[in-house]
Amino acid sequence: MALAKAELVEYLYKMVEAAQGKKQLKAMDLQKAVLKEHPDQDKNMIKMAIKELIDSGRCVYTYFGGSFIEIPHVEGAAKH
């Protein structure tokens, strides 16, 4: 069954949180994981839920040879 918007946002956040430090997730990885569990979930709603996570500052985009979605953390490259 498809998740409501607020539930979807939390679902995505927990997925990113669980992967932090172990695996970097792309937006498409998140979408595929949601659709595997909730095949009737609207793809646009997933995009908007990711946007909400980013706009709220709970997640950020990072670039390490590709663009990923992660929990904000101290910038490793900025350290001396």
Partner: peptide, 23 residues
């Protein structure tokens, strides 16, 4: 050094992080 976390709020594109390894 290239890449990283920098950007402007809401966007994931358009900013390319660059740092010197001899700061």
């Amino acid at each position: 050094k290239h890449g990283g976390i920098v950007g402007v709020l809401g966007y994931g594109s358009g900013i390319i992080g660059r740092y010197s390894d001899l700061p």
